[in-house]
Nucleic acid binder design. Structure first.
Lengths: 212, 212
DNA sequence: GGTATTATATGAGCGTGCTCATATTAGGAT
DNA sequence: ATCCTAATATGAGCACGCTCATATAATACC
């Protein structure tokens, strides 16, 4: 069965469509891989020839959305905006593109390893997420208050944390057009950008040990 | 089999001990409920007579640690410290008490619903975590810059987000005594407290829609 | 002691995500 | 046309968390 490349791509798309439908209908946990396979007209095992795991399948869908947000952002003409404004616009784009997947986006992205441990290596497992983080790194480097200095790992981790917080609020935001989410995003980013100007400290308390 | 209260408590403790051991050895996912039950000398089903789920079992262990941190904090004599210092001391206590469970603490707490949607109702499912959040709310209310005003839901959500970020960094922190974690904690809290003085905005960009 | 009652313990079994030996078939060689 | 081969599809089966009908045994009553 030396199937044509085209057939394989069609199967892949059928799986992605089925997954989009069922993940949106039932959320990440209640949408089973068996059901997705049936909806796509294939056997359960076949699904795993195309995607290594249910999580990777969902991430593929979300990654495409993030990539689209990225292009939308790049397509706009920028000049003179502050770092906070740029990050706001980029992240609002991401939220808009993730809109159709609000039901499961946060559940999946939350489980991704952020840029914590490994120095420099942004370790989000999905490539689109890695690119997003690299893009953020670049924006901070070139538009941040510490001209030209790339952010530390701790700073990047902080950014990722805040993004996850916004996503998890957004996933449950019942306000008309998720306006509250934009308020939270704004507050998060202002806070974050402000903190870039401050050096890294460590609070000293007389009766507090300085380690854990 | 109308077993004495004491026997039930002993079984419960045996389960908790077994869980502490295996969760620490293998992490949350690789420690199976079957193995924990065997280690505790009971049948698999029995475990679920004592705890409704594997997650609840782990949360019980972590909840006890958080409660201990809480009492340590209460036991100290406070006077004149800033909000940032109080939050720092409280959270450092929590981290210290969670120390023995570093392997799985973050994996479990991360999955807990934060104080996002429901107004006022802090919805962390474990009681110790709810208490912790209520305590934080109280500290912000009485020591924050907006004297006497309780924080908004968004503000609390932000705090929870930052705490999760610290936990996830801490879980992987390889620095000698997790000193980097303290740096991150410090930066997070300074940032957070600073943001309390600023009103909630929404960034306005000429070509950016004001909703999602 | 014997029996009834009833809280608790038990483990077969279910639905998951995922694997892997096997069956199937497309496409080249003849 | 026919066979051969290797890429792909298949679904029985595994280990997981968790459930539930049933077995077991501790107490109350006589």
């Amino acid at each position: 069965m030396r199937v044509t490349e085209q057939t394989k791509l069609r199967t892949r798309e059928r799986i992605l469509d089925a997954a989009r439908k069922l993940l949106d209908d039932k959320g990440f946990e209640r949408a089973t891989t068996r059901d997705i396979a049936i909806e796509a007209g294939i056997a359960t095992g076949t699904l795993f020839n195309y995607f290594p795991s249910k999580e990777a399948l969902a991430l593929t869908i979300l990654g495409e959305a993030v990539e689209q947000a990225e292009s939308e952002f790049q397509a706009r003409r920028w000049g003179g905006e502050s770092l906070a404004e740029l990050l706001f616009a980029l992240t609002a784009s991401v939220l808009r593109c993730l809109g159709p997947y609000r039901r499961f986006a946060c559940q999946v992205i939350e489980t991704q390893p952020g840029p914590s441990s490994m120095p420099t290596a942004l370790q989000a497992s999905d490539e689109a997420l890695r690119n997003y983080l690299e893009h953020v790194t670049e924006l901070i480097t070139h538009h941040g208050p510490t001209g030209g200095q790339p952010p530390t790992v701790i700073t990047l981790h902080l950014y990722w944390t805040l993004l996850l917080g916004v996503l998890s609020y957004w996933a449950q935001d019942r306000s008309p057009h998720q306006e509250d989410t934009l308020v939270l995003l704004d507050q998060s980013l202002r806070m974050f950008v402000h903190s870039l100007s401050e050096p890294h400290h460590r609070t000293e308390l007389s009766d507090e040990p300085d380690h854990l």
